[in-house]
Design a protein around this nucleic acid. Sequence first.
DNA 1: TGGATTTTACAGCGATCGCTAAAGAATGCG
DNA 2: CGCATTCTTTAGCGATCGCTGTAAAATCCA
Lengths: 202, 202
Amino acid sequence: MTTTKRGRPRSFDREVALVQATLLFWQHGYEGTSVADLTAAMGISPPSLYAAFGDKRALFTEVVDRYGSTFGAFMGNALAEESDARTGFARMLDEAAVSYTDPTHPAGCLVISAATNYSPATADVERDLRTRRAANIGSFEERLNEAKALGSLPAGTDTRALAVYFAAVVQGLSQQARDGATTEELRRVAAYAMAVWPDPSS
Amino acid sequence: MTTTKRGRPRSFDREVALVQATLLFWQHGYEGTSVADLTAAMGISPPSLYAAFGDKRALFTEVVDRYGSTFGAFMGNALAEESDARTGFARMLDEAAVSYTDPTHPAGCLVISAATNYSPATADVERDLRTRRAANIGSFEERLNEAKALGSLPAGTDTRALAVYFAAVVQGLSQQARDGATTEELRRVAAYAMAVWPDPSS
DNA sequence: TGGATTTTACAGCGATCGCTAAAGAATGCG
DNA sequence: CGCATTCTTTAGCGATCGCTGTAAAATCCA
């Protein structure tokens, strides 16, 4: 019943190769990373890449999926694990400031910066990332609506605008990190940004 | 003394061609816009483009310079024309929300979004835009320091962090606009963002 | 051991990239 | 007019793009 692996075994670690690809796409974006760059970093030849991952587009999708469940997981975690919404958003922004400037990997957020200049050839890649960002805003708004229902946000709060605001701040932090801002600078920015949180007694 | 123009006259309007190039670079970014795209939009052949503008890189620089004195001029104007700093920043954010979603031209800010994915080949382009963004933050900080000296900001205000905050919000507005946010949405975000402004009585 | 299976490296496909040599066309000057 | 000057078009340069045909190498099963 147990089926054994037939044929010549793969000569490289698929997971390690995926991490290498992640770092390249993260730093240079989808268009800015060539298949030659990828194969060089992975230490394999093009046919091996195509056999293991499909094509460049499919590899990128796999990279982004993995990114969301690893480097990008702090966002959802902060909102989900903190019972107080305000504390959750504050933690999310502060952790973004720290993560986006972490010197052990490229700066900023891959989902935000990997496909910003949409040419016709990469329109679907951009649409994909845009959809993920929209889903993010949706989860922000959902969390804010929850808080409003519980009374920790004023009844008149414009949760849609507030959700877009937080998304904009996160994107701003990502861009600033890529522009060379320091961790401490961005943490202070994150702290400032939380001053927008509406007074629940109003 | 007056030197007359010799040789065959140019068959296209240089200013009009520059605007066409601006729209392309604005929408698709530096790398995402090919010379073939440019010549097609301008209605000219490659040698004419190179004779009139140098090369793709020089054309882009000219486009960005022109952008700063036209589409992007509202920023400096808002800060310079309003005697009250808070009013100036509020106006800047609100006008950014309107301008970045103006349907008569591509969404967002060209300086922010035209070169985000830095490959080795375009490293100097990115450095150029990064320098311009840094100069922007510097002018923000300068304006805030001025306000602090005049007492319209608390003495303990972290003007550096506040300047980076406003830059981050502007970049967030640009990104959100490119992601399809509406004018009204972004204006509400801009209004929310001003809540960070420190209470001068504290 | 022989055959089926899978991955490997080598080489190169057509298309596009930024850019330019070459020669003809349109002007002002003398 | 004849010449110098400048812009024009045609055509194509070498390099790189994403991707693949081909055949040898390495494994498991019978």
